[in-house]
């Protein structure tokens, strides 16, 4: 006899907010207005710059030429098109360093989001689904962590375990789980009461299968939106930590390090603080605009949550 009943473990979840992401995406982007299109272009540019840095950068970002130190951008007197955005205090090309700096920001943004998103989503799923003591403990830890300024937490931990790209990414990723955890938990609380979850359970699906196959796709929309916003905030926090000398080591060209160098040359070389900061601000702006739009496009109700 042909097996035409619904197989227990393949019961299709009824609501799948996540699928909206694919459907009509192109049309929605075109309708979204110039801000969003510009943001997408800018972020694409950043990704291209990060990947193609060795090809795009006109100079070695770490090699200085002391005979050409503190040169202004090309349109000013004393500037040279060979160094379009000027040079820094040891004659390194600001333009090349800005290009290479995108690698660090992109790495930190993406990696820290993956860590905090995975950790927070997992804890939120468990917390919301299991309830009881597990939920109470996880949520109290979240409360305590929220009762402490994020940047101060990051500074204290990095101060002790030491700076460096890996440490910063791990600290940001681990410390950032709270917002994911809380949002996912809230969604799980309502989704777990739906019939399809009950159906899956009745058909004999285990807890892990219910959580990851049936519930997770239905709570994933806010995670995507949150990921966008937190990527922006992690990039800023990394740059701030690096600026304070507690992040990426000075030998690596990053926007935060460029701003650290620029601190002592604000008076003499305005291009040193302006360009890396503007690159960071534009990246954050584009990411935030994209997040705003994703939120409104995927689920307008999320406006209340974030």
């Amino acid at each position: 006899m042909a097996d035409n009943r619904v197989r227990p473990y393949e019961a299709e979840p009824v609501i799948r907010i996540g699928t909206r992401l694919g459907r009509g995406l192109r049309r929605a982007i075109l309708r979204a207005g110039p801000g969003v299109i510009l943001s997408i272009l800018l972020l694409s540019l950043m990704v291209v710059a990060a990947i193609g840095a060795p090809l795009l950068a006109p100079h070695d970002p770490t090699a200085g030429d002391v005979t050409r130190r503190l040169m202004p951008p090309f349109w000013l007197e004393g500037g040279d098109l060979e160094y379009p955005l000027g040079t820094d205090q040891i004659g390194r090309d600001v333009f090349s360093r800005v290009i290479y700096g995108s690698r660090i920001s992109l790495t930190v943004g993406v990696t820290a989001v993956l860590i905090s998103g995975a950790l927070g989503t997992f804890l939120g799923l468990v917390s919301g689904y299991r309830g009881g003591l597990v939920d109470a403990v996880i949520m109290r830890i979240a409360d305590i962590q929220l009762a402490f300024p994020f940047i101060l937490l990051a500074i204290s931990v990095v101060a002790v375990i030491g700076s460096g790209l890996l440490n910063v990414v791990v600290v940001l990723g681990v410390a950032g789980w709270v917002s994911y955890g809380r949002v996912v938990r809230g969604q799980v609380l309502s989704v777990k009461e739906k019939e399809f979850v009950e159906a899956a359970r009745a058909l004999g699906a285990g807890t892990a299968r219910i959580l990851f196959v049936h519930i997770l796709p239905n709570v994933f929309t806010p995670v995507i939106v949150l990921a966008t916003f937190s990527a922006a905030s992690y990039m800023v926090t990394e740059a701030a930590l690096t600026f304070l000398g507690l992040g990426v080591p000075p030998s690596i060209p990053s926007w935060g390090n460029m701003l650290t160098d620029a601190r002592d040359y604000v008076r003499t070389a305005w291009w040193m603080p302006v360009f890396p900061g503007a690159a960071l601000a534009l990246t954050v702006l584009a990411t935030n605009l994209l997040g705003d739009w994703l939120r409104d496009y995927l689920d307008p109700h999320l406006r209340k949550l974030m």
């Binding site: 800023v236 740059a239 701030a240 701003l259 620029a262 960071l280 601000a281 954050v284 935030n288």
Partner: peptide, 10 residues
């Protein structure tokens, strides 16, 4: 979107 510490420098 403007990072706080950069605003300070500016």
């Amino acid at each position: 979107s403007i990072p706080n510490f950069w605003l300070g420098l500016m």
